[in-house]
Write a protein that binds this DNA or RNA. Structure first.
Lengths: 166, 166
DNA sequence: CACGAAGTGGGGAATTGTGGGTAAAAGTGG
DNA sequence: CCACTTTTACCCACAATTCCCCACTTCGTG
């Protein structure tokens, strides 16, 4: 499905992949790459939820139906474990609804832009059920670091990776 | 199947092999060697996924069905281990769908060309379930280095390789 | 040598990304 | 409750990229 297979849609599962460098204009708007728009329109009626990524200084962008699944999972986390509680608070607290406008753009709330230090140049890439949005420079730094450790025999590799055949 | 044995297609398993020197034109397009095209057309409806090879500075090109297997493996990696998370992000994030055009070419995204330093001359070779694409010069260097170390007893050989009968 | 198949290159149309003007809406303070 | 400021949404226009098509070159084969 989709004119060039940039996503799959098997039953209820969406899989986003692919990478784009794009810019945020000085009004704080981000244009979702065109090839994803049709699916978002059909599957989520242009409704998206953007929130912070608790693991990296970046943002996560979910189609609304996918977010609802996440929200249920968060709701079931214990309130008595501090890390769980914080994760719940952060991800739900910063989750903001947004709609694709007529040009396929979304407005990213200032709070979230600040958190992830999004300025002019950003990268957005598919990551399964969601997109991840990074400051371009920050992303480059991570990529270089990762390349240096991966394939470097002196850095221990977790088992799950060692046994991975690609 | 295949007029000169450059691939097999046993059930759902594809095996690519063989080596080609080809060029990328100045629009960033790469012509997939003709002898693979029919299989790609039949088995993947001309849909391919290209992504970076985390272990060498080269690219991997999968037929879509083969990529989906990889994607599932990646999806199951832990998010809480940084190296695993990065691997997931990089490989899925850079994975770009592409279609063979009417001349049997694909457009390689600029990001990936930059990463693997693909300029005019490249080599593409079959590697089981995928193709590997290298800058020609970089490949020559690797080949020379490999010839020097293989058979050199001072360089340790992993057990799995030691027990390999060729 | 002639032919066909494979690889290469480029023009131009269509699509996609970017920026900004202006109107509507929402938030703020008196 | 109203006037004022700030933010958000819609529209249009330009720039860049990608895609589609046609033509030429090169190579192997009979």
């Amino acid at each position: 499905m989709g004119k060039s297979g940039f996503y799959q849609h098997d039953g209820d599962d969406i899989v986003f992949r692919g990478f784009n460098k794009i810019s945020i204009d000085n009004k704080g708007r981000l244009a979702v790459p065109c090839r994803y728009r049709e699916l978002i329109s059909v599957q989520a009626e242009n409704s998206l939820v953007i929130t912070l990524n608790p693991l990296d200084r970046s943002l996560w962008l979910y189609p609304l139906p996918e977010w609802e699944v996440i929200e249920d999972k968060l709701a079931s986390l214990s309130d008595f474990d501090k890390q769980s509680r914080r994760t719940k608070q952060m991800m739900r607290g910063y989750a903001t609804d947004c709609q694709l406008d007529s040009q396929g753009r979304i407005l990213i709330p200032k709070e979230l832009r600040d958190y992830s230090e999004l300025s002019k140049k950003v990268v957005i890439f598919g990551q399964g059920n969601k997109f991840e949005i990074w400051n371009e420079k920050a992303w480059e730094v991570q990529r270089v670091e990762w390349l240096e450790t991966t394939g470097d025999d002196s850095v221990p590799t977790p088992e799950s990776l060692q046994s991975l055949s690609l």
